[in-house]
Design a protein around this nucleic acid. Structure first.
Ligand SMILES: NC(=O)c1ccc[n+]([C@@H]2O[C@H](COP(=O)([O-])OP(=O)(O)OC[C@H]3O[C@@H](n4cnc5c(N)ncnc54)[C@H](O)[C@@H]3O)[C@@H](O)[C@H]2O)c1
Ligand SMILES: NC(=O)c1ccc[n+]([C@@H]2O[C@H](COP(=O)([O-])OP(=O)(O)OC[C@H]3O[C@@H](n4cnc5c(N)ncnc54)[C@H](O)[C@@H]3O)[C@@H](O)[C@H]2O)c1
Lengths: 205, 205
DNA sequence: TTTTTATTGTTAATTAATTCACAAATAAAA
DNA sequence: TTTTATTTGTGAATTAATTAACAATAAAAA
């Protein structure tokens, strides 16, 4: 359980949980590996293997107890205490992610959002939206460890420097800008266009 | 070049292109594998291998000619003719992706967007925004092949049925809902929260 | 009761992805 | 001219991810 899980397993466990939370488990409290696999379009052996890595067991006939599984995934991948997240840049993308995030059950908590001006709104995702100039002090005061960065590309580099010097542990970078970060900061990037272009390539054979 | 490239290579080639398009190649027309690798935080051998798979060669001392490389990536991963894309759901997320998309250079073209009502705006990303009721006929009339789906979860299943029956080839599904699609339709899903939860897991060791 | 059927847990096998390592090439330095 | 230093291109090695396979189990059917 405390063993180091492979990155892909961690990501899948998170996906299993989200799907299961949307599953009518009050009526159907158990699920088989092939059923969950079907929902996620992956191989059933994958699921059994991932759950095994967590040390989670199902019933050989009933399958997996969904409530227990959701709980176990939490114990495995969630941090022990609440870990605070800030959104830097709350335009279309930041707002979409923040809203989506607020529905998700986990031990991550949005503690602040930052943008250039405080107007016209001072709250997003039920937390205060501060002017970017207050970012460093608030990250420190609140003990924010994770950042979702979604500012316009032209500001990304400059803002990332402030973020890094505030002592965060991880950044999910949505800007397409290369950020120079020290090794102890974990950075994850994502590009939706590359997904679309991949889709295009493979639909054209 | 027409060889089947590994999925991860296709995705990376797209990323290389986006980074290179943001690179000042008018002043610095060549780039070395280790420089590009640094920008993308990957291994230089990775880059050399991916370019080799495309059949692209660099100069052993100057490195890779950036303009030529961008062109070669296009010839390799872009479709031959323009391939049309529609955005179904143009809320925060759909708008963010559509706007980002419009900056990106490729042979994909947003041909229409759809949402529940036509008000208050009838254009997004410079194309007309139609009422969802017109989706099927417009997908067919325009020959739209790819869909970016970003509607509220409660509508996703129903809307996906219409999309499928319209004869598209691929769907990039941002809703967290399981969609039943026939095998000949390529579907790609993405979940930002699982990325954040992964970030959380690995920043906590 | 016995047989059939289905599913888990797990090891082994396979496949895919990544990285290493180095020959070949050649510009720049000595 | 000769040496040194780099960097590409690529096969080989390694590592990670995925899938197959099946013994063990026990419910359900016969
Ligand atoms: N990776 C992807 O797939 C992807 C997809 C869409 C958008 N993007 C990128 O995400 C970023 C945000 O996109 P968007 O559509 O939400 O943009 P947007 O213009 O709607 O929002 C930008 C946000 O950043 C804030 N901001 C602007 N300047 C700032 C500053 N100096 N300091 C702090 N905050 C500032 C604005 O107040 C606003 O909240 C862009 O960089 C865009 O290119 C990436
Ligand atoms: N995968 C992820 O990481 C991720 C992240 C954020 C949001 N999401 C999901 O993406 C979707 C969109 O999120 P959002 O924040 O943009 O939501 P939103 O409410 O801002 O936008 C929804 C859009 O869908 C349109 N719509 C509503 N009902 C419709 C119908 N019946 N037919 C056609 N269009 C309809 C609306 O007009 C609007 O344009 C949601 O399902 C959300 O859960 C996923």
């Amino acid at each position: 359980m405390l063993a180091n899980l492979p990155p892909n397993t961690v990501e899948r466990l998170s996906l299993y949980r989200r799907r299961l939370l949307n599953f009518p488990f009050e009526e159907k409290p158990f699920i088989h590996s092939h059923q969950l696999a079907h929902l996620l379009k992956i191989n059933p052996a994958h699921i059994r293997r991932d759950l095994m890595l967590m040390g989670f067991s199902g019933d050989v006939h009933k399958g997996y107890d969904i409530k227990k599984l959701i709980k176990k995934i939490g114990q495995t991948i969630d941090c022990k205490q609440i870990q605070k997240v800030a959104f830097v840049g709350v335009g279309d993308l930041g707002r979409a992610v923040a809203a989506y995030f607020n529905n998700a059950d986990s031990r991550l908590k949005i503690a602040a959002t930052f943008r250039l001006t405080e107007e016209p709104k001072t709250q997003y995702a039920d937390v205060h939206c501060y002017n970017i100039s207050k970012m460093k002090s608030i990250i420190r005061k609140e003990g924010i460890e994770l950042i979702v960065l979604a500012v316009p590309p032209s500001f990304a580099k400059e803002i990332s420097k402030t973020i890094i010097s505030s002592g965060v542990k991880g950044i999910l970078n949505f800007t397409s800008v290369h950020l120079e970060v020290p090794k102890h900061i974990y950075i994850e990037e994502y590009d939706m266009i590359s997904k679309l272009e991949k889709l295009s390539y493979f639909t054209n054979k």
